[in-house]
């Protein structure tokens, strides 16, 4: 298969990707998705529809049982190291390390000394709004602050792509809204591409330019919505009629996906 030229083409393509566990559980079936530079793609769907599976496949933590994942600039089939950032549902920090040592981790594992990346660490702390906390330990931080550290760690290497698996699901709504706003700002400052898994219609519409709606059993893509609203999006966007209209559309698509699932399961 010929490589798509990287300048205009997607940075990442999932081509008919499938994942079957143990020969019986189809976690993901025939998923195709092109992710373009600067995209904010949300995967929205009910529990068990294969969102995490898709992310793990993209992160190279598992191999697909069908189809291919192509990184189009090189045509290679996996990425990692400095090109990829990941944020999990839990902050997943090392409790024995300070904030700055947690953020240093990706570079440390690439054998880069802390003094050599001092500037990058300070800069990213500023981006996530945690300047002054570099020497704090994770247990001294609130849930929202821990999540900011986790995001800083994912962004500090200025990766091409950041994968986020329900990063704000465990936070209260006030903190979540604040982090939603801040995440868009951080993304703009870093200039990365994001694939974001969520259960929340409102979150996905607020953040993304594309919402991929998925259904379960078997996990699959049922619809893709384009949220063609300009960035930067600020708090006012949440109360705009456009936002409400997009939310209704996404909500309808999600409901259709859920009905679809339960009808098949019954």
């Amino acid at each position: 298969m010929p490589n798509i030229p990287s300048a205009v083409g997607p940075i990442l393509s999932l081509r008919n990707v499938g994942k079957v566990f143990g020969g019986t559980v189809t976690a993901l079936d025939d998923m195709s998705l092109d992710v373009h530079d600067g995209d904010f793609v949300s995967l929205l769907g009910p529990s068990g529809c294969g969102k995490s599976t898709a992310l793990r496949l993209i992160a190279g933590l598992m191999r697909p049982t069908a189809g291919r994942i192509v990184w189009s600039d090189t045509g290679r089939t996996s990425t990692g190291g400095q090109d990829l950032g990941v944020v999990f549902q839990e902050p997943t920090l090392m409790p024995w390390a300070t904030v700055e040592d947690n953020i240093w981790l990706p570079m440390r594992l690439a054998k880069i000394s802390k003094s050599a990346v001092r500037k990058e660490i300070d800069e990213i702390l500023d981006v996530v709004g945690l300047s002054g906390f570099e020497n704090a330990y994770p247990r001294e931080l609130s849930g929202g602050m821990k999540m900011r550290v986790s995001i800083a760690r994912a962004m500090v290497t200025h990766p091409k792509l950041i994968l986020m698996d329900e990063p704000f699901a465990a936070l209260d709504e006030i903190t979540r809204f604040k982090l939603n706003n801040d995440l868009l700002e951080m993304k703009a400052r870093i200039g990365c591409t994001v694939i974001f898994v969520t259960h929340s219609v409102f979150e996905s519409v607020f953040l993304s330019n594309r919402v991929v709606v998925m259904a379960a059993r078997p996990g699959r893509v049922v619809q893709e919505l384009h949220i063609d609203e300009p960035y930067p999006r600020r708090e006012e966007f949440r109360t705009s009629p456009e936002y409400a209209a997009h939310c209704r559309a996404a909500s309808d698509a999600l409901h259709a996906a859920i009905m679809n699932t339960s009808a098949e399961a019954a």
Binding site: R56, A59, G60, F88, T92, P106, L109, A110
Partner: peptide, 17 residues
């Protein structure tokens, strides 16, 4: 923590690291 283990894998940590 299994997520940390995954993170180390993504960052291509050696066995020793």
């Amino acid at each position: 923590d299994h997520n940390l283990r995954d993170l180390f894998k993504i960052y291509r940590a050696s066995r020793w690291q």
